[in-house]
Design a binder for these strands. Structure first.
Lengths: 155, 155
DNA sequence: GGTGAAAGGTCATTAAG
DNA sequence: CTTAATGACCTTTCACC
């Protein structure tokens, strides 16, 4: 189940230089090409590596404002709220969290003013009782995974 | 600055099938190779596409528990807290948010019991006054970007 | 458009758990 | 004995000029 040292180094290498191929990776890691290929296949089969999709920056798309909204949901309306929020493009992710029918969602907007429009659309749904929004001022630690990979592979 | 319809379709295509090359992408989109290559170069130069790093699933690494912690920071200790949290592998991201010296961080742990260890390590720092943690029960909408890309390219 | 290179697959051999 | 790594070979496909 867990990944070993070589898996960890492979993931790190791919994260740092995504453009290198299997052959180049095998050279860098000092192992055979087939080994890298087998590891990659296994990591993807296990679901450790979900894919290699493009990493898109919302700010560069014109949405420089990020916010987190905590939503209080009316009993039994969770499913409807999920469906509703999934239709809002500015909702980048949504979690149900511990607490009395609470959800947490990540939003982006074109500006602070535009955030009002987004929030109105988000909470404009009968199942949502209350919403509390926190605007992100600085992304001190951008979403990262490498340190965790190191920890998981006892690197 | 903004992306057009073709950019949007290209990003979508790459998100759905990351393994396809420039040539195959040009066939699917019905445009010339050079066009796709130029668009890709421009999108990366503009920062819209940050890269094609591997998308790693923390759960598959053995960290199935996710939580969000809101931290209240002592005045003037923000920088030290950032440095401290950056050393904790289980801290996947950290934001400074609106509110009285507040930060929001995303954590993962091996189990609910292990979460206690992670939180202890996170808050075991003098600059942190108070911490409030919400455990994620269900990731109703996984982190996504395609709907926003569609909206940005008026797709 | 042509060409050098790499990806992806299969195989037998060898090493290690 | 089972699993994994290796190096060799092959064909298709792509990236670059």
């Amino acid at each position: 189940m867990a990944i070993d040292r070589l898996d960890g180094r492979l993931i790190e290498l791919l994260a740092q230089e995504p453009r290198i191929g299997v052959l180049e990776a095998s050279r860098r890691l000092g192992v055979a090409r087939g080994t890298v290929q087998a590891r990659l296949d296994r990591l993807q089969a296990q679901g450790v590596i979900r894919g290699f999709g493009p990493d898109v920056d919302p700010a560069a798309l014109g949405y420089p404002v990020t916010a987190f909204a905590t939503l209080e949901i009316k009993q039994g309306q969770g499913s409807d709220v999920r469906t509703h929020l999934a239709t809002v493009p500015e909702v980048l992710e949504l979690h149900t969290i511990t607490g009395h029918g609470d959800m947490l969602c990540r939003l982006v907007a074109r500006s602070n003013a535009d955030l009002q429009r987004v929030i109105d659309r988000v909470v404009g749904f009968e199942g949502i009782v209350r919403a509390s929004t926190a605007i992100v001022m600085e992304n001190a630690v951008p979403l990262r995974i490498i340190p965790l990979v190191r920890a998981a592979s006892d690197g």
